[in-house]
Design a binder for these strands. Structure first.
Lengths: 220, 220
DNA sequence: CCGCTTATATTGTCAGACAATTTCTGCGAA
DNA sequence: TTCGCAGAAATTGTCTGACAATATAAGCGG
């Protein structure tokens, strides 16, 4: 009766490739060949092809006809556009999540405390993880599976930017200040204000990222 | 030097299936088997499978492990969630598109005139087409490919609802009134107001659709 | 009419093949 | 040396055929 359905071969391949991409083992822009993975993982070409396709539609890889797939890397403009869409969706998440979070604010407060600790102790990696949790809490509380799925895809396309952001200590401090303001607005029931803060928060990330050097992006 | 790259076999299959779904030849919820299309289209299973996958990630079909694909049909809740996301994105489109449209408002005005004509002559099919063009104009003018692509996917999942909506004449009139208000707001440079109108416009569609009978949706 | 066993259909995955397309390599010309 | 091109090698796109695993339909007995 279990829903277990042990992972299919394709799913395993998807998991394996995802891990290698996210760990940085496969760099943005790098080409993946079918043969590489049929050999390395001992599966057939059809399976690798199917995994490639799923990962491409998931935003992690980019597919080009007759040229295979590469680890997705966006152009400056592409990142800009992504943040526009992401901003709109995160704001929606705040709108939908606020009442839910307000009903049980402990989780948000705890998270904020943890974030503060990570910042003051200078643990950037932990801050990054908690930051994701922070946004994840809103998305989850919003109770909209499609919204969550859409944002997940978007984030897949820019996972590689997280690293670059962490080195900007000052920006991290700003980011955390914005989190605090957001938490305060939510707990005070200032819905409208919370949405604006989230929008500005995403905009700030966008601006920061746009300031990165050109060699982090592909040409347009 | 041409960018022509004549369509691949998979693309042809995708096109063929899309056409049959959108024409109603394949009904929402209906299961598609691989063998049916290998025979009918004279292509191999691998090709059909790949087409199925693309269509599923595109929102037109739904994929279930070991059970193949079906023409996507959403539950009441699913439609609700989709309209929440769609609303946020259409509002973004208005925000981004307004300045562009304002620079050359002729196109929007023409479109509105056509819509009015369709409404007064009671040509619902034409209204539906123009309605899509109307929204398409904003999305296109927004100049954000990712936004356009995301909205396209969403619309793929609810194409089948358009038909149901057209029978509600009164609602069509309301819809057109909202279009007019939106056009006015844009041309008057009332950005903020235009966004609100678009939001309400999508909300109205959502409400209308939620009023449809249960047998238009899947169970939750 | 219901539930169970069995037969049939369908999906998941593999192996191997070949044409079309892209990428690499080495050589001759500017 | 650098550039461009022809041929070689690699890679993708697609097909055929196969078989195990899973799901669906058909019968059968109660």
């Amino acid at each position: 009766m279990r829903d277990h359905a042990h992972a299919s071969t394709v799913e395993n391949v998807v998991t394996a490739i995802t891990a290698r991409v996210r760990s940085g083992n496969l760099a943005p822009g790098q080409r993946l060949t079918e043969s590489e993975f049929t050999q390395r993982l001992g599966v057939s070409r059809s399976t690798v092809r199917e995994a490639f396709q799923r990962l491409a539609s998931d935003g992690l890889l980019a597919f080009e006809p007759n040229r295979g797939v590469t680890v997705r890397q966006l152009s400056r403009k592409g990142v800009d556009q992504l943040f526009q869409v992401r901003g709109a969706l995160e704001v929606l998440a705040v709108r939908l999540a606020a009442p839910v979070i307000l009903a049980e604010p402990a989780k948000l407060e705890t998270l904020q405390t943890e974030l503060d600790k990570a910042v003051s102790s200078g643990d950037m990696q932990r801050f990054s993880d908690l930051n994701q949790e922070f946004h994840g809490l809103f998305v989850k509380s919003a109770g909209n599976a499609l919204l969550a799925e859409t944002l997940r895809r978007l984030n897949n396309s820019i996972y590689w930017l997280q690293f670059r952001m962490l080195v900007h200590r000052q920006e991290v401090l700003n980011s955390n200040a914005q989190h605090q303001a957001l938490v305060r607005a939510i707990l005070d029931g200032q819905l409208q204000r919370a949405e604006v803060i989230m929008f500005d928060h995403i905009e700030a990330s966008r601006t920061l990222i746009q300031s990165l050097a050109d060699d982090h992006f592909t040409a347009d």
